[in-house]
Amino acid sequence: MGIAESVVATIITASLPLLLAALGELVAERSGVLNLGVEGMMMMGAVAAFGIAFATGNGGLGVLAAVLAGMAMALLFAGVALGLAANQVAAGLALTLLGLGLAGPIGEGWVDRPGVKLPTLDVPVLSDLPFVGPLLFSQDPLFYLAVALTAGVAWFLFRTRPGLILRSVGDNPHSAYALGLPVLRIRLAAVLFGGACAGLAGAYLALVYTPIYNETMTGGRGWIALALVVFATWLPVRLAVGALLFGAASILQLHAQALGVGVPSQLLTAMPYLVTILVLVLISRNRVLLRSHTPASLGQPFVPER
């Protein structure tokens, strides 16, 4: 691989956990549920993936465990935020604090241990193409899954009837309920999908991204994923573009540090977070754009009237 290829490859690697987590959150938010627990679900996914892969030596089982862990966390959130109609912001925060808290004692024995790496799968013929071959067709299974999920979510939300139903629940749950739609069950499904995706993102961090276990593995990526959903104005394809931009920002600051540009390394390390703030401001300024895509009932608890 040449230099350009390897830089692009690392950008893709850096953007993938963001994309996976944000895709799940996008679906949950489209159904009207704001789940701020992404960071916590992602961390539990990473813990489960690392632990199971470490114990069994099987990366695939690790991924499966991560998905289940993410969904279990999402179920907890759903129980409180949907079942008991609690404040979604508070419940999401609780989920993040719980997930990060649980990760501490569970993963304590693994700190700085090397984990299992997912193998790369070469697509025959295509992986031999110059430049795009190694970048797009010689990747780990989660990469292909993320690409498929992005296309799948875009198709599901905007080309299928269940997708339309999910969006209608997010825009006006009361009308949807009056039309006989099981609003809370649809929201539960969306939240569980979000948990599964956050779990996958965690698995990616544990099995592909970081060679060794550490407790700050997620490093705020769950929160950046939340910002990405706003940045993408709740559209999956824009989400992929946004994730790549964020990945690029975090990789380029590493290269800038290595080159020793005359800027403190701490400022460069803080760059992804500063960029997130900047991007949120830029996108939020455009009220018309936001209003036309934001799920209208986002964050509002729904209690069926009887």
């Binding site: 409180v80 719980l98 990060l100 808290g101 004692p105």
Partner: peptide, 9 residues
């Protein structure tokens, strides 16, 4: 921290 998280829930 686990106890704290559980309590908040």
């Amino acid at each position: 921290r686990v106890f704290q998280g559980v309590l908040l829930f």
